[in-house]
Design a protein around this nucleic acid. Structure first.
Lengths: 236, 236
DNA sequence: TAGTTTAGTGAACAGTGTTCACTTTTCGAA
DNA sequence: TTCGAAAAGTGAACACTGTTCACTAAACTA
C-alpha cells in the first residue's frame, strides 16, 4: 500500500522512502530536460534499475508522479515569490520584484510550469482532485502563491499607492493572469523576447521588468478624475 | 504527393479536396470536444470510413493535421479581433472590445487555443517550422492578430489617450501576454471565474471586462508627474 | 488500349501506460 | 528460531498509440 502518512522510522519505511525518492529524482532529472513527452515509465525504470511495474508500487499512475513534481515546483515558486515580497525594501520595489520573480521562476523551469497548466477544465463535475472552491484552492501551493499577490495588492492600497476602488482579489487575479501569460509566452513562443521589428539586443529580463512596471501602473491610484477611474476599475 | 498548391480544377483534384476536407471536418469535430488526446488517427479513420493509413496520403503526420486546425482557429481569432477593432465606435470602446474579443474567442475553443501554445521552445535551433524573426512571425495568423494590438496601441497614442512614452510593440506584447494569460487561466484553472472568497455570481465575462479595463488603465496617459511616469514605463 | 501515376489497404513495428499472476524478500509474532 | 503473512519486485501480456511499407485497385495520360 502507498501510505502517504510518514512511517519512515522503521528500516523498511526508510528503505521504501529511499527508493521512492530515487524515482522522483530520476523523474525530475529527465522531466526538467525533456518534459512530459520524454518521461516514460519504462525509461524511468531503466534509469533506476528496476522493472517498470515496480514503479506502480510507489505511484498509482504516471499522472500522480508528475503531479508531485508539479506540486514541488509550485512550492519553490511560492517560496521565492514570498521571499521577494517580504524583502526589506520600499513597497514599490518589493512589488515589482515579486512580479518579476514569479515570471522568472516559471520560465526557469519551463516544462514544470507549462505542465502545471496543461490539463483542461471539464465543466460537468469531473476531475475529483481539482479544488472546487476558494478554501480548497488556497491550501494548494498554487493558491498560496496567489495569496501573496492578494496581500501585495492590499498593502499597496493601505499605503495609498494602489487604487482603493479595486477589489483586491479581482486585482490579484488580473495580475496573476498577466504574469502567467507572460511566462507562458516566453516559454511557448520561440524567441518571444526578440520579437521586435528592429534590433535583437533585448533580453527576456528587460521585458519582464517592462511588463511588471506596466502592471503596477494600472493599479496605481490616480490623483484626478476620480469618478471616471472608479467606473473604469469596477468592471461593468 | 501532397501538393498544397491548389490543383482543384481537375475532377481528381476536386475529389481529393473533398476527402481531405472530410478528414479535417471529422478532426475538427472531435478535437473541439475532446482535444488532442481524444483525437487518434484510427478513430479519425473510422469516422470517415477509411483505413488509418489512408490519412497519411493527405497529411504527413498527425501533427500537421492539428497544425491546420490551429491555424484555422487563429484565422478566426484574427478576424474577430480585427472586426472588433474596426467597429464604428469611440476608440476606448473599440479598444476594450478588442481585448475582450480576444479572450472570449480563445476560451470558446479551449482545446484549440490551449493546443496552439502547447509546444515548447527549444533554444538550440530546432523546430524548422517555427518563425524565427519578426517578419516571418508577422505572416502567421498569430502574428496578424498581434499586429491588431500594435495598431490599437499606436492609435491610442496618436489620440493622446495612451502614454506616448511607451514603445508600441512592447506595450502590445505586454497586452498580448495579459490577454493570453487570462484566457489560459480560464481554460486551465477549474472555476477560475468564481475564485473569490465570498459569492459565486461572478461570470467569466464580468472578469474579462474588469481585466481589460485594468489593462487600458495601465496604458493611459497620465496628466501629472510626467518624468516619473516615463521612467516607470521605460522598463529599467 | 497500355502503362504510369495515384488512392487505398492490411499487416506489422516500435512505442506507450497499465495490470496481474507470480516469485522473492522482509519482518513481526509464536 | 521458525513459520506465516505482508510487502517488494518481476516478466509477460493487454490495449492502445503514430507510423511505415509492400501490396492491390482504381484512375488518368499517352
Amino acid at each position: 500500500m502507498q501510505t502517504d502518512i510518514p512511517v519512515e522510522k522503521t528500516p523498511a519505511g526508510r528503505r521504501r522512502k529511499r527508493v521512492r525518492d530515487s524515482i522522483i529524482a530520476a523523474a525530475e532529472k529527465v522531466f526538467a530536460r525533456e518534459g512530459e513527452s520524454g518521461l516514460s515509465i519504462r525509461r524511468l525504470a531503466e534509469e533506476i534499475d528496476y522493472s517498470p511495474s515496480a514503479i506502480y508500487k510507489y505511484f498509482e499512475s504516471k499522472e500522480e508522479l508528475i503531479d508531485q513534481l508539479k506540486e514541488a515546483f509550485f512550492e519553490r515558486l511560492m517560496d521565492r515569490v514570498d521571499t521577494s515580497s517580504n524583502a526589506d525594501r520600499p513597497f514599490e520595489d518589493r512589488a515589482r520584484a515579486c512580479l518579476i520573480t514569479y515570471v522568472e521562476t516559471a520560465t526557469n523551469r519551463p516544462y514544470h510550469y507549462a505542465a502545471a497548466f496543461s490539463s483542461i477544465e471539464q465543466k460537468d463535475e469531473c476531475t475529483p482532485a481539482a479544488p472546487k472552491n476558494w478554501d480548497e484552492f488556497m491550501t494548494t501551493n498554487k493558491g498560496k502563491a496567489f495569496s501573496v499577490l492578494v496581500n501585495m495588492v492590499e498593502e499597496g492600497q493601505a499605503l495609498g499607492m494602489f487604487d482603493r476602488a479595486l477589489e483586491p482579489v479581482h486585482a490579484a487575479k488580473s495580475l496573476w493572469a498577466s504574469l502567467h501569460g507572460l511566462a507562458q509566452l516566453v516559454i511557448h513562443v520561440p524567441h518571444f523576447e526578440r520579437l521586435i521589428p528592429d534590433d535583437g539586443s533585448a533580453t527576456t529580463t528587460d521585458f519582464i521588468t517592462f511588463h511588471a512596471n506596466l502592471l503596477i501602473r494600472g493599479l496605481q491610484a490616480r490623483p484626478t478624475a476620480e469618478a471616471k477611474d472608479k467606473q473604469a476599475g469596477q468592471g461593468r
